[in-house]
């Protein structure tokens, strides 16, 4: 298995070359092959690092499992959706949320890593909010979980601040000229939650029913929720 014993530098160089090939290759088969090559390199490197850290007793594998389970299953958009649904039904809660989302999150035990200094912004027929992190990937983990790939993509990060309407159009949302678009670039520790507009046809729904309608991307401002019925 001498071939597996590649130096770290070789790993990195190879990954880098493979990735540039993926960007420049014209044939989709070529792109696909290059991506698979990169994926397998990362898989090998990750496995090696985790194996060494475990053998040296620097990490506890049970902790790794708990971490992944927490971020894949415990926190996620379902939490933000409950906040949004409640804000639709409870005007007092909504006002408090808009005035000081951090205080509300503290009361409801919704603070945590990457999401204590919360700010909530509301979409209306005349104002549409869109959240971005031009630096990298800042995102309100306790309310929405980890950010999706598109949110971390360099194209989204660059274009959201320059041409938010163009970005939203490509996402399937056409905004009128009378709508003000507010883009929130998360450059500090403030994390944003967009409160989407309550869809028409949801009168009389319970909080749980309403929460089930709220999508992750609507809480980033990337889409509107569709009318019901």
């Amino acid at each position: 298995m001498a071939d597996d014993k590649v130096s770290r530098r070789d790993f990195i160089t190879k990954s880098s070359i493979a990735a540039s090939t993926a960007v420049t290759a014209t044939g989709s088969a070529g792109v696909h092959a290059a991506e698979e090559h990169v994926q397998s390199d990362y898989a090998v490197r990750t496995k090696a690092l985790v194996s060494v850290l475990t053998k040296k007793n620097l990490i506890n594998p049970a902790t790794m499992d708990a971490v992944v389970d927490y971020y894949e299953n415990k926190v996620g958009p379902h939490i933000g959706a409950r906040v949004v649904a409640r804000s639709w039904r409870d005007p007092d809660y909504r006002q408090r949320l808009l005035a000081d989302a951090r205080a509300v999150a503290r009361e409801d035990n919704l603070t945590g890593a990457q999401g204590t200094d919360l700010v909530a912004v509301e979409n209306t027929p005349k104002v549409h909010n869109l959240v971005v992190c031009t630096l990298c990937s800042c995102y309100p983990w306790p309310l929405l979980g980890l950010p999706p790939s598109w949110y971390k993509d360099t194209a989204y990060r660059a274009q959201a601040v320059i041409d938010p309407r163009g970005v939203l159009r490509k996402f399937g949302l056409e905004l009128g000229d009378d709508v003000e678009v507010r883009v929130w670039d998360s450059t500090a520790e403030i994390r944003y939650l967009v409160i989407p507009e309550r869809p028409a046809g949801t009168e009389g729904m319970s909080e749980a029913e309403l929460a089930s309608l709220v999508t992750r991307d609507s809480m980033i401002g990337a889409e509107k929720l569709e009318s019901r019925g």
Binding site: R106, T111, G112, A188
Partner: peptide, 9 residues
């Protein structure tokens, strides 16, 4: 740790 109040204020 994940559930801590992590304010930067």
């Amino acid at each position: 740790r994940f559930a801590r109040d992590t304010t930067a204020e």
